[in-house]
């Protein structure tokens, strides 16, 4: 604890140096006393920045880390003001929160989920084509990005929820039910995904077709509006910390996997394999048109969020969705620009 003032000061100095002259006047504000960050334990470079204390250095204050069960829970915590930053929360929860006018903004992405979340079918169930899903039981955690993908898969293949029994199960429950042979397929992420593949499962590729059909899913970094306004330097510092971790994953993946493995409680090999399934988007690329875009000119991700929200309305999980402009203005790329400058 005695070292704290020093690290804080050095962090501030680093942030000041990094953000450049344009951001300097804002830095005159006091650094936050502490920052509440909601996260999930998973194999991603974010875990390096967490474990090495880079995030804390970046925001210039100690961080209270809280693990949440779902992105929806982070949304609720944002409403209650008990969460300043949500790290790697799913695009479905993000879209829902924006549609409901919750007080947060998207400041960056962690990853494009891509093949990291995928359908796994029981090898013995002999499922070869979408039509084979008829009469089968498929489990997924409701409200998650996987759930969204699964429903998209059913819809794009002309299957209704009467043809297929869709069951709401947490990843741990999916593993248990899989072991009992009670479900024929599951749409879920690691580590449950790899566990059920080990226990007689086969991946059933859906992700690329779904990405093209408008069911793309990603993990975002969201910040409470009040925090973003009061502590812009901290927000920038947070993004830079993630950029640093991502850089490590690019330059020395072995070392990165080792550090991630420690944090996630898996073997380095597993961490490596799981991380390879994600498409982590570099910070400069995030400001491109394909993703978040630039201030005043939001990228395609706004449309992804709008499409997601519309689908949720269709599912009657949301009452209504605002026009795409609302999603565009929820993407705040000022911080990204400063972080990559």
């Amino acid at each position: 604890m005695t070292a704290l003032p020093l690290t804080r000061r050095s962090a501030l100095a680093a942030a000041a140096a990094a953000t450049g002259a344009l951001a300097l006047p804002r830095l005159s504000r006091a650094a936050p006393a502490k920052v509440n960050v909601g996260f999930f334990t998973e194999a991603k470079p974010t875990m390096i920045a967490k474990g090495q204390g880079w995030f804390a250095e970046g925001v210039g204050a100690p961080i209270t880390w809280t693990e949440y069960g779902s992105g929806a829970e982070i949304n609720t915590a944002m409403v209650g003001g008990s969460c300043d930053i949500g790290l790697a929360t799913g695009s479905v929860a993000t879209a829902a929160g924006i549609a409901q006018g919750l007080p947060f903004q998207v400041i960056g992405l962690v990853d494009n989920i891509g093949p990291a979340e995928e359908m796994t079918v029981r090898t013995a169930a002999n499922i070869r084509s979408p039509a084979d899903f008829k009469g089968k039981k498929v489990a997924t955690p409701f409200g998650s990005t996987s759930h969204f993908r699964l429903l998209g898969f059913l819809k794009t293949n002309g299957l209704s929820q009467r043809d297929v029994t869709v069951l709401d199960m947490k990843p741990a429950a999916i593993q248990a039910a899989w072991a009992k042979g009670e479900i024929d397929a599951a749409y879920v992420w690691a580590p449950a995904k790899s566990k059920i593949i080990e226990a007689g499962g086969t991946p059933f590729r859906t992700w690329d077709a779904l990405d093209k059909a408008g069911y793309a899913i990603a993990d975002t970094i969201i910040v409470h509006n009040d925090f973003a306004k009061a502590q812009p330097a901290s927000v920038v510092g947070f993004l830079k910390a993630y950029g640093k971790a991502l850089g490590m994953w690019r330059s020395s993946p072995e070392e990165a996997a080792k550090l991630v493995a420690q944090q996630a409680g898996v073997s380095p090999e597993t961490a490596m394999a799981e991380m390879k399934a994600y498409e982590f988007v570099d910070l400069p690329a995030q400001t491109g048109e394909a993703w978040l875009g630039t201030p005043g000119k939001p990228g395609k991700f706004a449309e992804v969020l709008k499409g997601t929200a519309d689908f949720l309305v269709e599912q009657r999980s949301l009452r209504s969705a605002p026009p795409v402009g609302t999603f565009g203005s929820a993407l705040n790329t000022h911080f990204l620009q400063q972080a990559v400058a």
Partner: peptide, 16 residues
Amino acid sequence: AGSSGIGWMILDAGRF
């Protein structure tokens, strides 16, 4: 493994 029942409905509706 919900998809029916008032309890599940409350839980699911509360999610978003």
